[in-house]
Write a protein that binds this DNA or RNA. Structure first.
Length: 401
RNA sequence: GGGGAGUUGCCCGAGUGGCCAAUGGGAACAGACUGUAAAUCUGUCGGCGAACGCCUUCGCAGGUUCGAAUCCUGCACUCCCCA
């Protein structure tokens, strides 16, 4: 590949590269570049949103470069400033390692382990003395820190900003210095932090890193950015069924964006699928299949398409579902109250809510709506039946005496 | 250091002694309609209980009162102005 082709390849699915000339120059060096990506050690699941950046990192690996992951076990104490100014407790290396181990398995569904380096920023940030910290702080000004729109906004709204929070960008910048990063990848919200890295690297006599930003994937709600805490996410470890279903629930306006960021389907093809006279639903099915194929397999993707069409489009009675055993201690004279069963199986947060759901007509047994919130059933009458709660929760009941 | 304002349910926010489990909005959930889309309409939205009801919740801890989210005291935290 020529340098131009490489640039073209890397540019796909990014919002900004600061700056392209520097990147071209670095690519010309002909050596493997060190491409940094910061990782929060508390995260449990890799979401499709996170995968956007990981996939870009993989693109660099494909060109022969090295992925330098920085596990923010030190910076986790601060947490990326978001209005919660609590200092979190420091995680022990063992705790961090356990998280990292769990998450790396997911990483390597995307990344090439041979070209991945894992670092922990506690190794250098944790060793800085107070004097080092003061010297570091002297290299940056309050005004520049306050440029961060998050800080600006909170300041204007009279919301608290704790002192340690403003150290966060500096910490991340020090990571780049320590790793001698050539490139730093990040989501669009990381722009400020990553740029601080550029400034600090120059201050420490290094060539500034190139910053490459990826757009944030909007979650399944179509509004907020995808995140675990908002519950609008698809995890790359989700079952094929969930992955397919969640993808089908995104608003139409997001289809194109999801194709661009989550799949390798050429955008010209996507434009075609969404063209005039086409049903966006079909494009969405294709999208769901692409995603399932990527993290599971094409076969499973086909199966899920069938299941989806049968169950939700044609509304055919479901015959197979996750098995659930009826807890024996629910059995009482006159049968098991259905609401209690729903609560006990975790299909509703409480029995009261379960009753509400029944009243609202959200509960069915083998396709037959149950509308009496106090309905009771004898276990043998329940065994083998499919319990449906809400739009998409199904359980096949069984009972052991 | 001085003066002032504030802390309510997932979020925002009303409530200043009983009619408050606490108005309203948003979010969320369910139903109808559909393409598990959007829009719209309807309903639910602290826990337990079949129900009268009971329990827990309005920063934390005490107190006054027959009765407190509402009054008093102390503590914690936040914001503003002055230095």
């Amino acid at each position: 590949m020529t340098i131009d082709q490489q640039l073209e390849f890397l540019r796909r699915g990014t919002t900004e590269i600061i700056n392209e000339d520097d990147l071209a120059a670095k690519l010309k060096l002909g050596r493997p570049l060190r491409v940094k990506l910061g990782v929060d050690p508390t995260a449990a699941d890799v979401t499709l949103g996170w995968a956007v950046v990981l996939r870009k990192l993989r693109d660099f690996q494909k060109l022969g470069h090295i992925a330098c992951l920085v596990i923010g076990d030190f910076t986790a104490m601060i947490g990326d400033p978001s209005g919660k100014s609590k200092t979190r407790k420091q995680l022990s290396r063992e705790e961090v390692q356990a998280n990292v181990d769990a998450v790396s398995q997911q990483f390597f569904k995307i990344l090439d382990p041979e070209r991945t380096e894992i670092n922990f920023n506690k190794d250098w940030l944790g060793k800085m003395t107070f004097e080092d910290v003061i010297r570091l702080c002297s290299r940056y000004t309050v005004a520049r820190i306050m440029e961060r729109d998050d800080f600006t906004k909170r300041f204007q709204e009279h919301k608290p900003i704790a002192m340690h929070e403003i150290l966060y960008p500096l910490c991340q910048g020090m990571d780049s210095v320590e790793l001698r990063a050539d490139v730093e990848l990040g989501g669009n919200d990381q722009k400020f932090n990553n740029l601080v890295g550029r400034v600090l690297m120059e201050q420490y006599g290094q060539e500034p890193q190139v910053v490459l930003l990826c757009p944030l994937l909007v979650g399944t709600d179509g509004k907020e950015k995808m995140s675990q805490s908002l519950g609008n996410y698809v995890s790359i470890t989700d079952s094929p069924r969930d992955m397919f279903g969640k993808t089908m629930s995104i608003p139409d306006e997001r289809i194109s964006n999801w194709f661009e960021l989550c799949t390798d389907v050429p955008m010209t093809e996507v434009a075609e699928m969404l063209g005039p006279g086409k049903n966006p639903r079909d494009a969405k099915i294709r999208l769901a299949k692409e995603i399932v194929s990527l993290y599971h397999s094409a076969e499973l993707a086909d199966e899920e398409e069938q299941y989806f069409i049968e169950t939700f489009s044609k509304r055919t009675q479901v015959t197979e579902a996750e098995e659930a055993t009826i807890p024996g201690d629910l059995v009482q004279e006159g049968g098991i109250p259905l609401a209690s069963l729903i609560g006990a199986l975790g299909l509703a947060p409480s029995n009261g809510k379960a009753r509400d759901l029944i009243k609202q007509g959200a509960v069915a047994l083998d396709g037959e709506k149950v509308s009496d919130p106090f309905a009771k059933f004898a276990p043998p009458d329940l065994a083998g039946k499919i319990l449906k709660v809400g739009k998409h929760q199904f359980r096949k009941l069984n009972f052991n005496n």
